[in-house]
Amino acid sequence: MDFNLTSLSFLNESKFNSIDTSKVYDIVIIGGGPAGLTAAVYAMRKGASVALIAKHAGGQVAETSGIENYMGYRYINGLELVDKFKDQVLHFTIDYDEGGEVEAIEDEGIKKVLLKDGRIIKSKSLIIASGKRWRKLGVKGEDEFIGKGVAYCSICDAPFFAGKKVVVVGGGNSGVEAAIDLAKVAKEVIVIQNLDKLTADKILIDKLNSFTNVNFLYKTVVREIIGDSFVKTILIENTELLQKSEIDVDGIFIEIGLVPNSDFVRGVVELNSNGEIIVDCSCSTSARGIFAAGDVTSVPFKQIIIAAGEGAKAALSAWEYLLNEE
């Protein structure tokens, strides 16, 4: 029996002060993943007054089972790494809010962060490190059958498909990882990939190929998810032959990557065609005094170690900006 203890959520929490809406902070950080937490450490070390707003501490890392490419750790559990990040932030007294969600930001020289619960936080500069969330397929039936055969989290929901026939949509790392989780329990797994090959890391593809109950459909997309009280059938299309067909399935896991959480900054800073915040090599956005870091930005490659490095850079840039403003 494993115990995935998030020990720090129980300890020392008192060092976190609640956010003061009457004050103007030097730096407000939006996001509690590797980028946001690293930015907090760098900003606090400079002596800036800092507030951090996190919807989920740890972000995607908290939902990752094992990490094997964060330097210093040959292997570490996702929550454990988040705990260590948080511990390092806790070394300082920081104004911190977990659970709060940002509705919008306004830039009138002084930046205003509007939370969904009505609070408004003021700051001289901002670091946006709001990360990404699961991408949806956007087909008919998807929303209707969430939790009724449509799933996104394989480590959560794979056990419920023991002995069943399931489809995994996506041939990247998250898709292949989900297919591996499912192949261990399901009767049959069908991986549907829009390209003509998988794009996951070789080490993962090799592992998936060691199962005998996995089949692949390439150059294929899902057009519709059909069922009554439960998913029963999916309508797929081969994009080369333009042939549509139906397959009967018990479940469908959608693992087609991520979309940036940038809706609340639309119109304030420039975004690229993927919705990512465009940053230069100093993490500056198109708006003065607003910086961004991690998966929400246009920086190529979304990795924990890259996000953490970008968070550090954003904090140092924000500090330099504050010095020059005074």
Binding site: G147, D157, P159, S229, F230
Partner: peptide
């Protein structure tokens, strides 16, 4: 724990958690 109480989970059609 849905995987410990399988018939109960089936009664409530649990295939995604938390439900």
């Amino acid at each position: 724990d849905a995987n410990n109480f399988v018939p109960l989970s089936q009664k409530y059609n649990v295939t995604g958690v938390p439900k």
